[in-house]
């Protein structure tokens, strides 16, 4: 019986951008929503973590633990040719948190990246069903 060989389709080389931001005020949801609606980027995820930031502490004792704060880690995966645009977009969205020393944003290179698309034509998608 003949076998069909399937090969995964790959995007051009990609990049990953991680934003570590305060967990309050739903900033992570805001970022993910604006990325989806404004930039068409759906390859994002968010998780909650414990963050330590040295910049926000004035003269901390050398041997003491800095105070911990709840943070959200938002990871965005994009094609290489859009990385600069998305990085700049994210810095503008979190400018306030960056200036207060409560955030950091960094970018790295991905060696492999698979394609990700959402299914289309699902009835009722995008509508909120109310009873």
């Amino acid at each position: 019986m003949p076998q069909t060989e399937t090969t995964p389709s790959h995007h051009p080389p990609g990049k990953w951008i991680t934003c570590i931001i305060p967990a309050e005020h739903g900033l992570d949801i805001d970022l993910m929503t604006t990325l989806k609606n404004g930039k068409g980027v759906i390859t994002t995820s968010s998780s909650r973590c414990r963050g330590y930031s040295g910049w926000t502490v004035t003269n901390p004792p050398a041997n003491a633990m800095p105070p911990a704060n709840p943070v959200s880690v938002v990871t965005v995966v994009v094609a290489e040719d859009r990385a600069e645009e998305i990085f700049l977009f994210l810095t503008q969205r979190i400018t306030h948190a960056l200036q207060e020393g409560n955030a950091i944003l960094f970018q790295g290179v991905l060696s492999h990246l698979s394609q990700y698309e959402l299914p289309v034509g699902i009835p009722g998608e995008g509508h909120i069903n109310t009873l």
């Binding site: 570590i20 040295g54 943070v71």
Partner: peptide, 20 residues
């Protein structure tokens, strides 16, 4: 173990850390 790791990193000059 994360407290020990964060403390060690800070003593070596790191300015922040995130624990998941």
């Amino acid at each position: 173990m994360s407290d020990i790791i964060v403390k060690a990193a800070r003593e070596a000059g790191a300015q922040g850390a995130t624990v998941t």
